[in-house]
Design a protein around this nucleic acid. Sequence first.
RNA 1: GGUGGGUUCGUAUAGCGGCAAUUACGGCGGACUGUAAAUCCGCUGACCUAACGGUCUACAUUGGUUCGAGUCCAAUACCCACCA
Length: 425
Amino acid sequence: MNIIDDLRARGLVADCTDGEGLAARLAQKPVTLYCGFDPTGDSLHVGHLMGQVTMRRFQLAGHHPVALAGGATGMIGDPSGKSAERNLLTREQLAHNVSCIKRQLARLLDFDCAGNPARLVDNADWTAPLSYLDFLRDVGKHFSVNMMVAKDSVRSRMEGDNGISYTEFSYMLLQAHDFYHLRRTCDCELQIGGSDQWGNITAGTDLIRKKLGVPAWGLTFPLITKSDGTKFGKTEGGAVWLDPQKTSPYRFYQFFVNTEDSMVVQYLNKFTLLPLDQIAALAAEFAANPGARAAQKALAREVTALVHGKSAADDAIRASEIMFGGGLEGISEALFNDVVGEVPTKPVEKAKLEASGTVLTEALVLAGLAQSKGQARKDIEAGGVYLNNQRVTDVARGVTVNDLLFGKHILLRKGKRTYAVLSAR
RNA sequence: GGUGGGUUCGUAUAGCGGCAAUUACGGCGGACUGUAAAUCCGCUGACCUAACGGUCUACAUUGGUUCGAGUCCAAUACCCACCA
């Protein structure tokens, strides 16, 4: 099966500038392709994953992926899909963000393989030295404002109340210029991106055709829409980041385990490298026995391993089994320590646990599970508080040295899945 | 510029002068289940208390009337509608 058919089968093709032409070209010999990531934050999040995984698919099919960090475009701000003007980032922030996301971009692709190693570029390298006058003459001349105004990203902003600044209006020229630059310097013939990037990508293929007279293709994948209308990748706690410091591998794993039934097969297709027949088998198993949630677990395992590595994924799985597997009996100290690593931990003086100990309400506040003793009391009375995985309903319960696990830790839990640990010292 | 209507707890809404203030959604917790969906129950301004209960801060802003004001009056700001 060729790569295009595989992408189609996975539902990863929203639009393509010339599907047949591209398929024919891909069949001939390896193609160089790129996907850009703007450094709007100091980490990428799961929303960016699809671009990276899709590049990985191309790499596995023998093509040459180029990951582009938007050191230049990040200074401007992409108007696509935004309803309001963005605040500009400072240069320091931007430099910091670029260095952070470069590391993450390096994670999913193989930069060392023999035949088709991936490359990492920063569009600031070729954009910053350009003079404004040269840019206007060499690039701007090829775009008609009439066409630019007609693009979705611009039109929706012009129809809105907030308008669009000249700066953001120019964004598509920069991105078009990137594609042109890569086409000229490293023979990059294909750009991929989310479907919101369609306008920017076609601006690039147009520019290449006009200036170089050679073909170039654009391919977009559909943006994920959830059934309840909320944005993919956002949880109550905020975005799900790829940076393990910001979202631990355990939380990352949990995010995918909690995928809703209606989306899980789609995600398996789009976010994992599992072969299609294996996904079909999983889908069948899942349909027969949804309660076992084999599909969610497979999804979470695959994606976590892809992003954080196999051993981190295994740790997350083991920690999850403990947290959701019932009691703590018979758990080894080593295993427990694994769990502790995944849970917010606060220190507590051992002296406070002597004699009658610390009242549970206070312990909850100390652990950060309740913001006041009053709130803690309500939670306990509602039956939502667990000490070492045992429900406690007595508000005045004292937490003492007798409750310490392995002489060190106290495991507190609010509700089904919010854990915290107090470590005695 | 003129006339009328509005501004209440995350959002949306109710509130003939005694109100920490209705209802819905959301959020949190519980039951059922599959770490789901649907459903049902409890909590939901903050803080203190084992508890009865207490303290503080709140209905755009400022000032007034009143024992008492989200509620009445006045000015200011912002929003909406109609007219020009």
